[in-house]
């Protein structure tokens, strides 16, 4: 048994090493930088400070984070409302159609995203008056992130045990009841992973906010970009990144907590 475990461990070892080296260490280094001092000549001095985090408490940063957060909520909500049913329906389709739509979902990635965004600009400019508005930013973000939501829900939906649903329906449960008791709890994982895949990116899709919002909307991601590229304040950029990462962690934590809740609901029945 011991050797069995050893051989399994050998299989995961490349992942462990790669993750340690190229994910954990770089991020740890960024974390370290966020506590360092920026000198007046734009370089970094290895002296511990909390100033970068104090700087973030200024109203301009707090309001930017808050506005960015609100935008992310709006975008994620629309994605759930439109994408969740799409993913579920897709999972229920016959296999041939299912495979077709799955391919159709990954296909747009073959057209460069900047080109796609440029096309949206043409569309909005020609047929609407909403270019360079909040609304334009929202719909483009929904557009960009929708495939991720559909994909997550679909993956969970495909695994759904159809027989349980049919049994419930046969026992006279209404469609709504069956959905609430069976479908929703069992696809909650996909929905929640869809939320994590859309929520945080929508705080950082700076190209969309820049190009569609006419430069009038600053996202949390813009703050990082500006500090890194314009002001050369790497430690402050790192600090903003750390805060954003913590926020990401929080969203994931909440989602992980919610999932067992949804499952328990099913078990209680």
């Amino acid at each position: 048994m011991k050797s069995r475990m050893k051989s399994d461990f050998k299989k995961v070892l490349p992942l462990y090493l790669f993750t340690a080296f190229f994910v954990i260490i770089p991020i740890a280094y960024a974390f370290f930088l966020s506590f360092m001092t920026r000198t007046n000549t734009f370089s970094v001095e290895y002296v511990f400070t909390l100033d970068n985090y104090k700087e973030l408490l200024k109203p301009i940063y707090l309001t930017t984070f808050w506005d960015s957060f609100k935008l992310a909520i709006v975008v994620t909500t629309i994605n759930i409302v439109v994408g969740y049913p799409a993913g579920l329906f897709m999972a229920k389709l016959p296999e041939r159609q299912r495979k077709f739509f799955f391919a159709a979902l990954t296909f747009p990635f073959w057209i460069n995203s900047i080109v796609r965004i440029a096309s949206i600009i043409i569309l909005l400019r020609t047929y609407t008056t909403i270019l360079y508005s909040y609304f334009a930013v929202v719909i483009t973000m929904v557009y960009a992130l929708m495939p991720f939501m559909i994909y997550s829900v679909y993956s969970a939906g495909v695994k759904l045990d159809r027989s349980a649903l049919e049994a419930a329906r046969m026992l006279g449960a209404s469609e709504i009841r069956a959905f609430l008791d069976i479908t929703l709890p069992l696809t909650a994982k996909g929905l929640l992973s869809g939320v994590t895949l859309t929520f945080v990116p929508s705080m950082c899709l700076i190209y969309i906010s820049n190009l569609l919002g006419g430069g009038k909307f600053i996202l949390a991601g813009n703050l990082i970009e500006n500090q890194l590229i314009k002001t050369h304040n790497t430690p402050l950029a790192a600090a903003i990144s750390v805060v954003l990462m913590m926020l990401t962690g929080l969203v994931i934590l909440i989602c992980n907590r919610l999932e067992p809740v949804a499952r328990r609901r099913r078990r209680a029945k």
Binding site: T39, I60, D67, G215, I218, K230, T231, N233
Partner: peptide
């Protein structure tokens, strides 16, 4: 310009954009 002055520039610009 000095890093401090650049920081002020960045701050007022963000306020303007907002």
């Amino acid at each position: 310009i000095s890093a401090d002055a650049a920081d002020v520039h960045e701050e007022i610009w963000n306020e303007f954009v907002k």
